[in-house]
């Protein structure tokens, strides 16, 4: 998504050239463009915008015993519960802790791996890219599930560490928070790598070489030449990792005993049928995440990482 504006220059000039042509077909091009954009805009309106207003409306209803919520009522009851319940406070805090830890790991490791892909060539580059794309094409369920035989006390990692003598007794990686962190990292890392790599791929290696010729060490040339230029990619990677990890569902549910907001919300919706509370919790989480994203972009933009959606 971050490379979208790299070609808008070309497209823009073509668009400008097109609109300067005085042919009859061009006179109506604005209308035709609107006609072509209309199906997508109507779809987004009906399947995305309107549903969020329904969610907002339901969050302000009273809960009911016999139905999912009391239609037609106005009440702050659900929000009251979100802000006063100790259980919900713990759940929200745990979700954000998980989100922050995974985001930091994902950005740092993603930056490293993107750099390795950028610096490699030929078959190595293809293999490294394949290792990023393959998990992306695999369902979340499987990506999470695979860590059970790997991380369990009788699993592969414990076997290896025990036989190498690094451990004297098996460690319980799953179910535990470390399992959820590893599982969630595995889910978001490919996106982070690609977001950073797509910016790196447009960079000029000659600049790094110049810095080294002028005496900069390799780490210094990385931090002072490469890093500032890939900040936009880092911003995208951070925002994606953060949003998805705060809302993590499968990894914490399967690989840890911790309850995240998403795990709890699923219970509220599908088992307890408490729509008002689930809606209010979703609205609060969305707003909290929006603040989180704003903070991330504020911090990163000080280092040149302006977050730009398009």
């Amino acid at each position: 998504m971050s490379d979208a504006n790299t070609h808008s220059g070309l497209a823009g000039s073509i668009g400008a050239a097109l609109s300067n042509l005085p042919t009859p077909a061009e006179l109506s091009s604005a209308n035709r463009a609107l006609l072509l954009l209309a199906p997508l805009l109507v779809f987004e309106l009906l399947i995305f915008v309107v549903p969020f207003f329904i969610l907002l409306r339901i969050s302000f209803t009273e809960s009911a015993d016999d139905t999912v919520y009391e239609a037609g009522t106005w009440s702050l009851e659900a929000y009251g519960e979100v802000f006063t319940s100790g259980l919900l406070r713990d759940i929200i805090l745990y979700s954000f802790q998980l989100g922050v830890i995974v985001t930091v790991l994902s950005v740092v490791i993603g930056l490293f791996y993107a750099y390795a892909i950028w610096r490699s060539s030929g078959i190595v580059k293809s293999l490294l890219l394949l290792s990023v794309v393959m998990p992306l094409l695999t369902t979340l369920v499987i990506r999470t599930y695979a860590f059970t035989p790997l991380l369990s006390p009788t699993g592969t990692l414990n076997d290896v560490l025990l036989s190498l003598g690094f451990l004297s007794e098996p460690v319980q990686f799953v179910p535990a928070t470390i399992g959820a962190v590893v599982g969630q990292l595995y889910i978001v890392l490919p996106y982070a790598v690609l977001a950073i790599y797509s910016v790196m791929a447009t960079m000029d290696w000659g600049l790094v070489e110049a810095a080294r010729d002028l005496g900069a060490s390799r780490p210094r040339s990385f931090f002072e030449v490469v890093l500032p230029q890939v900040m936009p990619g880092i911003s995208v990677a951070a925002v994606i990792s953060f949003a998805w990890s705060v809302g993590a569902y499968a990894a914490p549910d399967l690989l840890s005993n911790g309850i995240t907001f998403a795990v709890h919300a699923e219970d509220l919706m599908l088992s307890d049928m408490r729509y008002s509370l689930a809606a209010a919790l979703s609205v609060v989480m969305l707003l909290a995440m929006l603040i989180g994203v704003a903070l991330i972009s504020a911090v990163l933009s000080r280092f040149g990482g302006d977050f730009d959606l398009a």
Partner: peptide, 8 residues
Amino acid sequence: GQELDEGS
């Protein structure tokens, strides 16, 4: 549609 009318 967006290519047809870039600046809209």
